[in-house]
Design a protein around this nucleic acid. Structure first.
Lengths: 203, 203
DNA sequence: ATCGGACTAACGAACGGTCGTTCGTGTACC
DNA sequence: GGTACACGAACGACCGTTCGTTAGTCCGAT
């Protein structure tokens, strides 16, 4: 009756394959028989290891969320705001780049969770977002950033980060660490105090 | 046999409802009967006005792509790079904010198009992206921008813009024009020549 | 004025197919 | 002889779509 942890490794393989399929084709566009086939199984055999399709989605989304949180936990709260935000940015991108499939599922399929689980994810996402926002606000307070609306600035930063799963290719020529630094530098500079309009702009 | 333009207005209503449903629930999570119900119809009645579900998706995605292209066409090619990129950014965001539903479908459901149509969209998207990239490269050439990789910088900018459909709320308090300006200012500053590290950062 | 017919638009029923899932069975291994 | 695991068959539900039919409307002819 309790249908979990029969063999420990099998469930992990299923999660991996589900991550790849959900990530590339999308949750609703992936059938259970299709998933089973990727593991050289029949659809019915999956249910000895998992509770159902939605639980599979939940496991992936939950892990991805946990990975983001864990990475942000490594960034000390008492760092100066600019450096703190820089580390939050690079940590966030590293999670995306390392687990592209899970990140894709996290960003594009979390809406298909059940109402209750979706509500929980929204809460955790908002909490996570607050860390970025606090870094931005602290930076405004100490003068290293200059933005009119810290909430908007936070959304701009996170948008830039989160869309990267759409085009980043782990097999491509871009080195993830260099990419993360480029991201951080560009975004940090975007928030930094504006000193002077260099060429004679009218504004 | 020719199943189009029976009544001109009806098809438009269907497209509107489909945009809202596909945009919020997703393409594969929306059934034709569900779409019909939103129009107070039965599923079978839709087929007097449309060819099929995928043609509906195509119509929406195609229009969204055309809207982006048309908006970018309004930006003169001979503007100085920084101003040109600024106008490209605000034009792009205006399209997203004005047609949130269609933008959502465009960004998250274009993958579900048929192979051929998907290929066409990729080509058009790449072409569109080139306009942003050219503005960035020209800005690097004339010294107004300073980035190590113009391709990456372009992707960062477009990522920041494109993810906005996920959180922007037309009914919310944020004024779209102010928001677009905040976006442009932040991103432009991120690309601009770096003058000096203001406070004594070690880097 | 009224009938007949063409046209528009929506309908119910049904098609073949696929969906996620359940269940009883078979089979290898300890 | 349990136990772990995979299987085929089947379930009810829903999918996108087709088709024959039925109303309603407009219009020219009677």
């Amino acid at each position: 009756m309790t249908r979990e942890a029969l063999r420990p490794g099998r469930r992990e393989e299923i999660l991996k394959a589900a991550g790849e399929l959900f990530g590339s084709r999308g949750y609703h566009a992936t059938g259970m028989r299709e998933l089973a086939q990727a593991l050289e199984l029949r659809g019915s055999s999956l249910y000895a290891h998992i509770e159902g399709k939605e639980e599979l989605l939940w496991a992936i989304v939950d892990r991805a969320a946990a990975a983001f949180t864990a990475a942000a936990d490594e960034v000390p709260d008492d760092l100066p705001p600019a450096e703190r935000l820089e580390r939050l940015i690079t940590a966030h991108l590293r999670v995306i780049f390392r687990q592209l499939d899970h990140a894709a599922v996290f960003f594009q399929d979390w809406v298909h969770l059940s109402t209750e689980r979706r509500r929980e994810m929204v809460a955790r996402r908002d909490e996570y977002q607050q860390r970025f926002r606090r870094a931005v606000e602290d930076g405004v307070a100490d003068g290293s950033f200059q933005v009119e609306d810290p909430g908007v600035a936070t959304l701009i930063v996170l948008s830039a980060l989160n869309f990267s799963y759409q085009w980043y290719d782990a097999a491509g020529p871009l080195d993830p660490e260099r990419l993360a630094r480029a991201y951080a530098r560009t975004l940090l500079d975007g928030l930094r105090s504006r000193h002077l309009a260099a060429a004679g702009g009218k504004e």
